[in-house]
Design a protein around this nucleic acid. Structure first.
Lengths: 142, 142
DNA sequence: ATACATGCAAACACTTTGCAGCACA
DNA sequence: TGTGCTGCAAAGTGTTTGCATGTAT
């Protein structure tokens, strides 16, 4: 095992701005676009590429959590402990799931075909409260 | 409840070709690109849009299963019973997980915030056998 | 006959990248 | 003072859509 070279990082203003934006949007599972808008509103010179790059760096460092959503933009959050998510099929919003984390879920795998499992995600799908209400409205009107 | 209008579908040659391609690739979790290539090789006039549209129709009808993979192309398979998947972080390949389906997993949710859960997916991540071997090779060489 | 389906190309959403200049350590 | 970072724009990937034409029922 060679010495793990620490990821070289500089503390740039832009990086701090991205981190601040994520912090300020804590709990809303913002997309990179949301974060870009926050940062860009105050500092118009900051580019989208920089936001993406810094979100990547911060996620790699474990300072923020990247939630990869199928068929939708990646979302970010401060919460670094593993947990699951709910995604609305209608509006695409994402919520944290209030449910214990199954750290040993991979133990249930009977045959991994040589695969080395390092983690897992669970995504619940359905309709959020708002979209459920909207759907009901629409049903009533025919 | 108004009568559920059956999804109108015609049995076109193109639809059959897409279905055949999925069948022939059963077990490999092909992407839409894989399926398009198969179909297009034999029938060059078939367009990408048609393949996408038909994959959508077939998935909606339940004849095939759409596996939505975060940060990667959607994959399709014949197997219609719900099950979980393994995704290699290095090469992006997808395998079926040999693991019982937790039909009542959503019961563990203690607070759904008004969300009506209709389903869930579990995606295990890690390294497939091939990429594991490749990584080891690389480590030995330094 | 008439919708649904097709083919084409353009648009779309999200993300990455090449490159020249800048600035943190 | 050098390498990591930035901004810009362009390219890349995967998918959808507008529209005129075709075809299954």
């Amino acid at each position: 095992m060679t010495a793990q070279t620490a990821a070289p990082t500089r503390n740039t203003v832009q990086r701090a701005l991205v981190m601040d934006a994520v912090r300020s949007l804590h709990g809303t599972h913002p997309t990179s676009a949301d974060i870009y808008e926050i940062v860009h509103a105050e500092h118009p010179h900051v580019s989208r590429a920089t936001v993406y790059r810094n979100l990547g760096v911060l996620a790699e460092r474990g300072e923020i959590l990247r939630v990869e959503v199928p068929n939708g933009a990646d979302r970010y959050d401060l919460r670094a402990t593993p947990h699951y998510h709910l995604k609305c099929q209608a509006c695409g919003c994402v919520l944290d799931a209030d449910m214990p984390y199954h750290a040993d879920l991979a133990d249930e795998l009977t045959d991994t075909h040589g695969f080395r499992v390092t983690g897992h995600t669970i995504l619940f799908t359905g309709l959020c409260a708002e979209c459920r209400a909207a759907a009901q409205e629409a049903a009533i009107r025919g």
